Simulated assay, not measured.
Amino acid sequence: MRLARIAHPQGFAFVEVRGDISDPSALTCAEISEHPFGTPEFTGREWPLADVRLLAPILASKVVCVGKNYADHAEEMGSEAPAEPLIFLKPNTSVVGPEAAIAYPPSSE
């Protein structure tokens, strides 16, 4: 079973992606009522995959990050690994789906 989260014309849904992946134009999304964990129940609504937008698999409540957490990464950034971990947060809106553009804030590179 291939599970996904989509935006469709009436809102958002968890779905099962059905069809042969060698023919993307034939793929459809079958809506799952509520969430896909456990034994999913289907609502009977379906959309062609081409008519919906794939989203991130889940909407995180928070994203906790650790920066420069290994020596090679710190070196890539032109510094040494810190003595204490660098912890920072990202808003859940920073999680995007496949092929979605990543929006950088003006203060970022």
Rank of each mutant, 00 (worst) to 15 (best):
L55S: 13
A13L: 05
G44E: 07
D20G: 08
P106K: 05
I32Y: 01
A103N: 05
V52A: 08
V64Q: 12
N92D: 01
A56H: 09
G44S: 00
V66S: 10
I21E: 14
E99L: 13
P24V: 03
V63N: 05
A26Q: 15
S61T: 10
I32L: 00
I87T: 14
I87F: 12
A7P: 11
F37I: 02
L54F: 12
I21M: 07
P105R: 10
A7T: 11
R53S: 11
I58E: 14
E109T: 07
A26E: 12
L49W: 01
P98R: 08
A74Y: 04
G78E: 03
S25D: 14
P91D: 04
P57T: 12
M1W: 13
A71S: 10
G11T: 03
E31W: 12
V96L: 01
E99N: 09
S25F: 12
E41F: 02
I87E: 10
C29A: 11
R45L: 00
F14R: 11
M77L: 13
T43C: 15
A4R: 06
P106R: 03
A83V: 12
E84L: 09
E16C: 10
R5V: 07
A7K: 02
V17D: 14
A81P: 10
M1N: 14
F37C: 06
L86K: 12
K68M: 08
I87P: 06
M77G: 04
T93L: 11
W47F: 03
A81Q: 14
S33L: 05
A103E: 11
P98D: 12
